[in-house]
Design a protein around this nucleic acid. Structure first.
Length: 287
DNA sequence: AAGAGGCCCTGATAGC
DNA sequence: TGCTATCAGGGCCTCT
């Protein structure tokens, strides 16, 4: 599900709720996520204060009061829910995939605080929670990741150094977290549409102008989405609580056979598969 | 070594 | 209605 903007929205809500709160207890119903949750996970979290909530790329980073960290990655279908301890009612829903009510199944991890609890739900179990023991190990973990589009190091000379003479198509590069962090399948299509670049273009053949557009629109598309509260693909009736609206602004994603929205363009949006992922673009205005 | 594709998993939807 | 096939926002691993 979640790309950088969605994770950013979840992080902000989470930050408001759990920063400087003490973890009373952790209950794990199912350890078999993308990676098996460590057997000491519950004991290590128990009694710790969460002194900071941050995000890098698609990861939520909880800093604990002993300078260790708990990473949360939502994978494709992970959601977080904040529930009142007693009434079992959802207080705040950090959901972008499900209805705002707590799903009945797949509530794998319960992190219990004094007056409320956080529940990690994930039907497909592509997400994971991971403990990192020290600041050094945290740096090590993220050292394999490229800069976020907002980072000043994501600039023309960086793109040139990474993309020059490369045959891999540009869409795959945007999805490659070692190249740039936080972009997923939806925003890759959107960024390339805005940049007027065909997703199949071989990266080595991009021009300076293309680099500039990729840098500019990566920031712009992600920022716009954050402003709109992210994207909620699955829409439910009677939706309450947090639910993004950026999907209403998709220019190409999930718009196969619809008209290109670029002014004066007569194109029809095409859907192709690149490395097993759906890719949407207009072959008239994206060259 | 770079790059393409398979695979992990469940659930929603489309088509018959 | 009920079956089956296809697809889904991520990312690691393997093979060529």
């Amino acid at each position: 599900m979640p790309e950088l903007p969605e994770v950013e929205i979840v992080k902000r809500s989470l930050k408001n709720n759990i920063e400087n709160k003490k973890i009373k207890k952790v209950i794990i119903k199912n350890r078999n996520l993308r990676f098996k949750i460590h057997k000491k996970f519950e004991n290590i979290l128990k009694g710790k204060f969460i002194i900071n909530v941050q995000r890098f790329s698609k990861y939520i980073i909880l800093t604990l009061d002993n300078n260790s960290y708990c990473l949360i990655h939502l994978g494709m279908s992970g959601t977080l829910h904040i529930l009142n301890n007693n009434k079992k009612k959802v207080i705040t829903n950090l959901s972008f995939y499900h209805s705002p009510n707590l799903p009945k199944k797949h509530n794998h991890v319960h992190i219990i605080f004094d007056k409320f609890k956080i529940i990690y739900n994930d039907p497909r179990r592509f997400g994971f929670l991971k403990l990192i023991e020290t600041p050094n190990k945290l740096r090590g973990f993220f050292s394999n990741y490229g800069p976020e589009p907002f980072d000043e190091t994501f600039n023309i000379s960086y793109l040139k150094s990474k993309l020059n003479y490369k045959s891999k198509n540009i869409k795959n590069y945007l999805l490659d977290q070692k190249f740039v962090s936080g972009i997923g399948n939806i925003y890759a299509s959107e960024i390339l549409f805005n940049s007027k670049i065909n997703p199949q273009r071989s990266s080595g053949h991009l021009t300076q102008e293309d680099y500039k557009n990729i840098i500019f629109f990566s920031k712009k598309v992600l920022n716009n989405s954050i402003k709109k509260g992210g994207s909620t693909i699955q829409n439910f009736k009677n939706t309450k609580g947090y639910s993004g609206s950026f999907q209403k602004e998709f220019k190409v994603y999930d718009r196969e056979n619809e008209k290109c929205l670029k002014k004066n363009c007569k194109g029809i949006i095409k859907k192709i598969v690149i490395s097993n992922r759906s890719t949407f673009f207009c072959d008239l205005c994206q060259k």
